[in-house]
Simulated assay, not measured.
Amino acid sequence: MCRNITILRGLEPAATEQEIYAAAQEFVRKVSGVSGLTTATKPAVDKAVEAIAAATTQLLAELPDRQAPPQSEPPLRRIAARSAALDEDAS
């Protein structure tokens, strides 16, 4: 499973635009095989990421609420939680 493609539906608080965009970027990187952007690939990749992020936002808005939250948090939340924990330890 790609690191940023996690269940975004049912998160509390709801998935952010940044989390949705990160998942869309990872999806496009995976299916396209493009790991580094060049002037030749950037326009197509950017367009695809925007379309997938928009479709994901719409999908999440239209789906009914989950009965239980997802078992794991998106990577951006895990990174933020680790940073907060490190800041608390340093205090």
Rank of each mutant, 00 (worst) to 15 (best):
residue 2 C to R: 15
residue 3 R to W: 12
residue 3 R to L: 09
residue 3 R to C: 08
residue 4 N to R: 03
residue 4 N to E: 10
residue 7 I to P: 00
residue 8 L to V: 02
residue 9 R to T: 06
residue 9 R to I: 05
residue 9 R to F: 04
residue 9 R to Q: 15
residue 10 G to K: 00
residue 10 G to I: 01
residue 11 L to C: 03
residue 11 L to S: 05
residue 11 L to T: 03
residue 12 E to M: 12
residue 14 A to E: 14
residue 15 A to F: 03
residue 17 E to T: 07
residue 17 E to G: 15
residue 17 E to M: 09
residue 19 E to V: 01
residue 21 Y to S: 09
residue 22 A to G: 04
residue 24 A to V: 03
residue 24 A to R: 00
residue 24 A to Y: 01
residue 25 Q to K: 09
residue 25 Q to P: 04
residue 27 F to G: 02
residue 28 V to E: 00
residue 31 V to F: 09
residue 32 S to A: 09
residue 32 S to I: 08
residue 32 S to Y: 07
residue 33 G to R: 11
residue 35 S to P: 02
residue 37 L to H: 07
residue 38 T to C: 07
residue 40 A to S: 15
residue 40 A to H: 14
residue 41 T to Q: 10
residue 42 K to T: 11
residue 46 D to W: 08
residue 46 D to H: 10
residue 48 A to N: 05
residue 48 A to W: 02
residue 48 A to T: 02
residue 49 V to T: 04
residue 49 V to E: 00
residue 49 V to L: 08
residue 50 E to C: 10
residue 51 A to R: 15
residue 52 I to V: 13
residue 52 I to Q: 00
residue 52 I to P: 00
residue 53 A to V: 02
residue 53 A to N: 01
residue 55 A to Y: 04
residue 58 Q to K: 14
residue 58 Q to C: 06
residue 58 Q to V: 10
residue 59 L to H: 11
residue 60 L to K: 05
residue 60 L to V: 07
residue 61 A to T: 08
residue 61 A to D: 12
residue 63 L to S: 04
residue 65 D to H: 09
residue 65 D to V: 06
residue 68 A to N: 12
residue 70 P to I: 06
residue 71 Q to V: 11
residue 72 S to A: 10
residue 72 S to K: 08
residue 73 E to Q: 14
residue 73 E to A: 11
residue 74 P to W: 01
residue 75 P to M: 07
residue 75 P to D: 10
residue 75 P to K: 06
residue 76 L to E: 02
residue 77 R to P: 01
residue 78 R to F: 02
residue 78 R to S: 03
residue 78 R to D: 02
residue 78 R to P: 01
residue 80 A to R: 13
residue 81 A to C: 08
residue 81 A to I: 08
residue 83 S to Y: 14
residue 83 S to R: 13
residue 88 E to L: 12
residue 89 D to E: 15
